[in-house]
Design a protein around this nucleic acid. Structure first.
Length: 679
DNA sequence: GTTCGTTGCCTTTTT
DNA sequence: GGCAACGAAC
């Protein structure tokens, strides 16, 4: 017998909120308007330091208070760090459990969706994720084998090719157009590049691997292709919120539009003045023309800056005013001024600049400012060299958001290659990485081994094998490698627990243990001079892995999480409260703030970047200026702008440098010029 | 086929 | 000044 039964939605009294938050009291008028806006589409333009994150987190709380269920909310952010922070803050705000809320970066949400439906796209659910290094490893042999002219010295390097491919995917332009409009000087190779591109795509499929761009592009493809799946997610995500909307690209924008569907309950938050990712395909048009896609959208502006001294804000506003393309808004300071006028310093050379920064930092610290409240920002990582050296010799503690991420270090990738291969038997890159660690095995032998593996019954099946050694031990390896090879095979066996007709994966942390004991410790000792440090890193990786029971989730996390966002050492760092002065690229400093900020290398050709000046592309120069704006608006109390007048190491031969043209964009009286040692 | 040493090249920003 | 690509010897 059937019986109709309905679960009724609990009705909440509109006057009383479940969390007990007094929204009107805790938010300013503009914030409140945005947070309490009606369902439907809304565009929130939130200036630097205006409490953007606050608005977004309160919006989520507000929705929950309105009776919206957590599992019906999707919160898209730009970095893992931002998503973590927001979810933590929402958890503090509302009483209920919000673990059902989907929050994360576009890439991680894409990964989550693709893991469920990869087979629809010709992939297996255990697909590997390729980082830049893996991509290069995959692409290199393709370029080598490509016909004709690739031997030519001027033929683009794999790195450049990958950037081009990435742009193609992220802008959804054709390869021909990208070459034509952005890389005119490469057009003569169009035919070869196209062939390489096609082979690269095919190879990714063959090896059951996706690169970062695929996580977006294939998600979009899936949603476009399969109406049922699209509907499933449209029904699930009744409310979609997007942070840093000014930095979304075509693909991300389309994904959002599709997911939002007919309900159109979408809130996007951003600041066009802080759009700094166009080189990654980000398109400011998305935010500038939001109302064209959502004609009924309400626009909210949040224009009170709580962060900076008025002197700093005034300077920032003046600096960005030189840009033509922007949404009109006027940021006003809520803070009182008078502490300090921003300083401008011309130093003799990079060493003198480092000297100045270090000495000033010491004075500030002696004056009672904590090191954690100070940051040194620069355009490119290599510009931090002299400062690192100076800080080190003066024993000033610092933490650096370096170019290399924790998970991208060779030894971490070595260890994970064993796991990746076991999980995804078609992962050629990982297999070869393992093989190349054996003595006497080079590219050629690795390739041979790989092909024999593929031909074997086990290797050609998508099932998880119960034993690797049963197949791999039969393969021919160079005599030198024999004993190591056997050891490796038995180690791989340990990563799988034999179950019914298919193997079952061991826990990630146990896998790492087996790998260290079985093969990697020996290898590490022979291959690296700083063996001890690396061993510690691997130990950290192992500790980190204990949080995970699902290997695939663990691997995805390794690929998607960057160092800055939250590497495994973060727990340790938290104990020490992120010790030291921060050295960071401006891109990575986005969304953060410090009491004291130094911006260094403000010389033409360094910042703005020389390549951009050469290109004479005004759009790119404007983006560069926005980057400068982002840097300026990180400062709360004190701001120091400096540049070296000479750069002896400049490889362009230009030893003397001009001050950055951005310094001409504001009236001179907005800064104090500090004269150092009579210069 | 692999490894090691030399030359010559080029330096942005990241999920 | 670092790394990739190339060429020469094991």
């Amino acid at each position: 017998m059937e019986r109709e039964y309905q679960i009724k939605k609990r009705v909440t009294d509109p006057g009383e909120s479940r969390s007990g938050i007094d929204y009107k009291a805790e938010l300013n008028e503009q914030q409140y308007a945005a947070v309490s806006s009606d369902p439907g589409a809304s565009l929130v333009i939130a200036g630097a330091g205006s409490g953007k994150t606050r608005a977004l987190t309160y919006r989520v709380a507000y929705l929950l208070d309105q009776g919206v269920e957590a599992r019906n909310i999707l919160l898209l952010t730009f970095t893992n760090k931002a998503s973590k922070e927001m979810i933590e803050r929402v958890t503090e705000l509302v009483p209920g459990d919000i673990s059902d809320l989907w929050g994360g970066t576009f890439h991680s949400i894409g990964n989550r969706i693709l893991r469920r439906h990869a087979d629809e796209l010709g992939f297996n659910r255990s697909f590997s994720i390729l980082d830049r290094d893996d991509q290069k490893a995959l692409l290199k042999p393709i370029v080598k084998n490509a016909a004709a002219d690739v031997k030519n010295k001027r033929f683009p390097k794999p790195d450049l090719l990958l950037s081009i491919f990435s742009l193609v995917l992220n802008t959804q332009e054709s390869l021909e157009d990208v070459l034509h409009y952005r890389y005119e000087y490469l057009q003569e190779w169009e035919h070869e590049i196209k062939k390489i591109y096609e082979t690269y795509i095919r190879k990714k499929k063959e090896t059951n691997s996706m690169d970062f761009d695929d996580l977006l592009v294939l998600t979009l493809e899936l949603l476009k292709k399969d109406e049922d799946i699209l509907e499933l997610y449209q029904r699930k995500f009744k409310y979609v919120l997007v942070d840093e909307y000014q930095d979304t690209n075509m693909v991300q924008c389309e994904i959002v539009d599709l997911l939002v569907g007919k309900s159109k309950n979408l809130m996007v938050v951003g600041d066009d003045a802080q759009s700094i990712y166009s080189w990654r395909g980000a398109d400011m048009e998305n935010i500038l023309h939001f109302h064209m896609r959502y004609p009924s959208a309400e626009t909210y502006k949040i224009e009170t800056n709580y962060r900076s001294q008025p002197e700093i804000l005034e300077l920032s506003n003046a600096a960005i005013a030189a840009n033509t393309e922007q949404i009109e808004k006027k940021l006003t300071a809520s803070r009182k001024g008078g502490e300090m006028v921003p300083a401008l310093l011309a130093l003799a050379d990079p060493r003198a600049q480092a000297d100045f920064v270090a000495q000033r930092v010491q004075e500030l610290v002696d004056g009672g400012i904590e090191e954690e409240e100070i940051a040194v920002l620069y355009r490119a990582h290599y510009q931090s060299m002299e400062i690192q050296m100076e800080f080190t010799s003066r024993l000033i503690p610092f933490q650096i958001t370096s170019g290399l991420r924790f998970f991208e270090q060779a030894h971490v990738k070595d260890v994970s290659s064993y796991i990746r291969f076991v999980v995804n038997g078609r992962d050629e890159i990982s297999f070869k990485r393992m093989a190349l660690m054996l003595p006497g095995v080079g590219d050629a032998s690795a390739d041979k081994l790989w092909r024999s593996w593929l031909k074997s019954d086990v290797g050609s099946s998508d099932k998880v094998p119960q034993s690797f050694s049963a197949t791999l031990l039969d393969l021919k390896v160079p005599a030198k490698a024999k004993s190591h090879w056997e050891q490796m095979c038995y180690t791989l066996d340990e990563l799988v627990i034999s179950g019914g007709d298919e193997g079952v994966f061991a826990a990630p942390a146990d896998m790492i243990y087996s790998i260290i004991e079985g093969v990697y410790e020996d290898y590490m000792q022979s291959a690296f001079d700083n063996y001890e440090n690396r061993k510690q890193d691997i130990g950290q990786l192992q500790t980190y892995a204990t949080q995970y029971t699902d290997v695939m989730e663990f691997l995805a996390q390794l690929s998607l999480m960057s160092n800055v966002d939250g590497d495994p050492s973060q727990k340790k760092q938290k104990k020490e409260e992120q010790k030291g002065v921060t050295l960071s690229s401006i891109h990575q400093a986005k969304g953060l703030e410090w009491k004291v900020v130094f911006i260094v290398w403000l010389a033409d050709g360094m910042f703005p970047n020389g390549k951009i000046l050469e290109s004479e592309d005004n759009k790119m120069l404007e983006e560069e200026r926005r980057l400068f704006y982002v840097a300026l608006t990180r400062a709360k109390d004190q701001l120091y702008l400096s540049y070296p007048m000479m750069n002896p190491r400049s490889y362009s031969g230009e030893v003397f440098q001009n001050p950055s043209r951005f310094l001409d964009d504001f009236p001179a009286e907005l800064v104090d010029e500090w004269k150092v040692n009579g210069w």
